[in-house]
Simulated assay, not measured.
Amino acid sequence: MYVVGECRLRALLKERKLSQADLSRRTGYSRSQIGHWINDRKRVGVMGLDKARTIAEVLGLDSPYDLYHWETAPDKATDD
């Protein structure tokens, strides 16, 4: 199993030489919302798949899942 890790949006914007304002204009999402995804995931949560797909398309990513680092979840003992 996998769990969502850190949002990669900051690094992706830097690589593409785009600002949060640029992304806001291209997607229609507010700068403050974009900033929350970048800085405040624990409070705001992971962006919805519809938003991630829009952002991934704007950034030229193959998949919306590329917006996050993915971590392997620790194995949980199962009660069978």
Rank of each mutant, 00 (worst) to 15 (best):
D66M: 04
G60T: 02
V3F: 10
A77F: 11
V4H: 06
Y68Q: 07
V44R: 11
S63F: 00
A56C: 05
A11H: 02
R10M: 05
H36T: 14
Q20I: 07
G28M: 03
E15I: 00
G48S: 14
R26H: 09
T72S: 10
K76L: 15
A52V: 06
L12W: 01
A56D: 05
R25A: 07
D79P: 13
S32K: 12
R43A: 10
K14F: 03
A56P: 01
W70F: 06
D22V: 05
K76R: 15
D66F: 02
I34K: 14
L61P: 00
L18Q: 09
Y65C: 05
Y2K: 09
G48D: 14
I34L: 15
P64T: 00
A11C: 00
L23D: 06
E6P: 11
L12H: 00
T72R: 13
A56H: 04
V46Y: 12
A77S: 11
L49E: 13
T54I: 07
S63V: 02
V44C: 08
L9Q: 02
A52C: 11
A73S: 13
H36R: 15
I38E: 15
L49D: 12
H69Q: 14
V46P: 08
R8P: 03
P64M: 01
C7R: 02
W37Y: 15
E6L: 09
Y65D: 06
A21K: 12
L59E: 00
M1K: 07
L67V: 02
K76I: 15
Y65H: 05
A73N: 10
R25H: 06
R25D: 04
A56M: 03
R53D: 10
D22P: 04
L18R: 07
R31A: 09
T72A: 10
R26G: 04
K14T: 05
R31P: 07
S30E: 05
M47L: 15
K51F: 10
E57H: 09
P74H: 13
V46N: 12
E15D: 10
L18S: 05
D79Y: 12
R43S: 09
L12S: 02
L9W: 01
K14Q: 09
T72F: 09
E15W: 03
Y29H: 07
S30I: 01
V3Y: 11
G60S: 03
W70T: 01
D80P: 14
S24F: 04
K42P: 08
D80H: 12
Q20H: 08
D75L: 15
I34Y: 14
S24P: 03
K14D: 07
H69E: 14
G5L: 03
S19Y: 06
R8D: 00
M47H: 09
I55P: 00
S24E: 05
R8E: 04
V3P: 03
K17V: 08
D40G: 11
L23G: 04
G28S: 03
G48C: 10
D79R: 12
L49I: 14
D80F: 13
V4M: 07
V58T: 09
E57A: 12
K76M: 13
I34V: 13
L49A: 15
K14G: 00
L23P: 04
S24G: 06
